[in-house]
Write a protein that binds this DNA or RNA. Structure first.
Lengths: 152, 152
DNA sequence: GTTGAAACCGGTTGTCT
DNA sequence: AGACAACCGGTTTCAAC
């Protein structure tokens, strides 16, 4: 499915505020309500729009500490990767996890209340995994930018 | 403001789907519509709920390449940090940017269409900044987990 | 915090251009 | 494919418990 300018405009707007009314969207996109409605329906069905969510304020939710960590797995064990992937999916503290090129295997983004909370997570959840060989943590001192908006 | 179990339930639900109706929420939280409504209003006003957004599918949007990069700044120049921060905020390709502990200064999460697109960004936008001394890029080979849901 | 009612919007659908 | 209008469902507000 190919997107035109109007589709892109709609996506750009919904990425910043999903509660805009059809009327507000129609004014900003220069289309009447009917086509706006139809286009959104198609964008949802095609999967361009994945879901609608509420974004919470991390600090207000008591997760003041943000940590990125590099994890190296024990590559001798063939099951290591599957094991680690599944474990990470079940950890609510881990918000992002991916396999990266370079000299470590995984990059994780982890939230915690404070250093003590992170230490508990580290000791009790992360380092206990059989598949984990090495972990190094990078603590976020200042968050310059954090957005869910993809360039459209 | 202190959150009770009902507030947490509401936040947990809205983080996965912000389009649940008051009726659906009231059924899952075991409260009637009136208090659900009132609690959401308070959570919005207190800032626990930051905003409502549509999340798009990165690959469907043609951003197949995901890259994390470590950036080291030229620390001789005092304006470096402010300059770099402001530049990054203006780059739509950069979805996350933070100052981290360790042997580099910044960690960036960048999306691009493909390697060529990333190379253009790298050469024309990132490496040209006066403040930048060194960049190393880590390419994401597999995304295991990516969520906006904070643990509640 | 609950229920019920009423008013108001906005989403949804059908028809016409 | 887009505009218009009527309908319907959900949100919002209120009063009484």
């Amino acid at each position: 499915m190919k997107l035109d300018t109007a589709d892109r405009d709609i996506l750009r707007l919904l990425q910043t505020n999903s509660q805009l009314t059809m009327k507000e969207l129609s004014e900003q996109v220069n289309l009447s309500i009917t086509p706006i409605h139809e286009r959104i329906r198609k964008l949802e069905k095609s999967g361009h729009i994945d879901r609608y969510v509420a974004l919470l304020n991390r600090k207000k939710m008591g997760k003041a500490l943000l940590v990125y960590c590099n994890v190296t797995l024990d590559k001798q064990r063939r099951e290591s990767f599957e094991e680690f992937n599944e474990a990470v999916k079940r950890m609510p503290e881990v918000m992002e996890c991916c396999v990266v090129s370079g000299n470590f295997d995984y990059l994780l983004k982890v939230v915690a209340e404070d250093m003590e909370d992170y230490n508990n997570f580290y000791q009790q959840n992360l380092s206990v995994l059989q598949s984990v060989q090495h972990i190094s943590s990078f603590f976020v001192m200042s968050e310059i930018k954090s957005t869910t908006q993809l360039p459209v």
